[in-house]
Write a protein that binds this DNA or RNA. Structure first.
Lengths: 156, 156
DNA sequence: TGACAATAGTCGTTTTAACGACTATATTAG
DNA sequence: CTAATATAGTCGTTAAAACGACTATTGTCA
């Protein structure tokens, strides 16, 4: 991957700005990490957004969340949550019930099956993250987190 | 965005590990930056992968590249390059010609139209990156790049 | 109260991505 | 030289994501 990026640099030309270099690096590194997670999910037939929704719902358990709340925590648009939820419900990983107080909202909860699925993934995820990032050491990790949060404050 | 992330942390629980925190931060920050680029592309009806392919081809100009070479530099699988190229060719942004020496390969080149489209985007992209990342300053930017490359060496 | 606006969620459609199977050409080994 | 294997690219199908329009319910205010 690094070799690939270097090859590309050589081939085109050095980055126009340091910012451009950081930008591309950030995207590529995130992509590499992302693929690691994706690989763990695939055997369980779970897409990354589905996994994220389940985690969000686990965080709210034993309470539930409205579609809108899930969409907010997720980085996606509302309209697509519905069908994503459809698939999760169909697999028995979540349940949905119309709220009695405000009959517009539908409260979604994670089921025991859903929780078990997540639990299965917890350790592998942590191990993968440890392998991908642990070599930096606590000090550099903290600094990296710090930098990223700063960037997101400006860019997000 | 930051507020959103903090809210999520509060709601679930602090991250299990520092690595997990860095992992999520990296993904979210990359997503934020990515959306910035996407927004610049949308008015021109160009998807991020299409943009990347055009940039790769510009780097190779006046030469061309085989599908496989483009796929290598891109982070995507081969099979999908074909149709992506189809759309670019249909819009006159690239041309394709079967190689005479090895008749299996198809050499793809960027057209003047394609180059002009890219040129239109160069300045806005740099400006966006400057706005998103410039506030860090050269020193921190270099360090960030350094950290990211280290991570990618291990994770990519 | 009754009209109007806002909000929650769903649905229809189009575009992209993902995965696997398939064709054509080239390379290699016996 | 031929059979087997590898490589380049394409195609078919299914699954997701993107975008907009639509329905139902609630809230607001004249």
């Amino acid at each position: 991957m690094v070799r690939r990026l270097q090859a590309e640099i050589r081939q085109t030309k050095p980055f126009a700005t340091l910012e451009a270099e950081a930008y591309l690096n950030l995207l590529r590194t995130a992509d590499a990490l992302f693929r690691g997670g994706e690989a763990l999910l695939k055997p369980l037939q779970l897409s990354p957004p589905q996994y994220n929704v389940l985690r969000i719902l686990r965080g709210a358990y034993p309470g539930g969340l409205a579609c809108r709340e899930v969409a907010e925590r997720l980085l996606t648009k509302d309209p697509d949550i519905t069908r994503l939820m459809d698939r999760l419900e169909h697999r028995g990983l979540i349940t949905r019930a119309r709220n009695q107080k405000d009959r517009r909202v539908i409260t979604t909860r994670i089921t025991p099956d859903g929780q078990q699925l997540l639990k299965q993934l917890d350790k592998p995820m942590l191990e993968m993250q440890e392998q991908q990032l642990g070599h930096l050491g606590q000090r550099k990790l903290r600094y990296l987190i710090n930098l990223l949060e700063t960037v997101r404050q400006k860019a997000g």
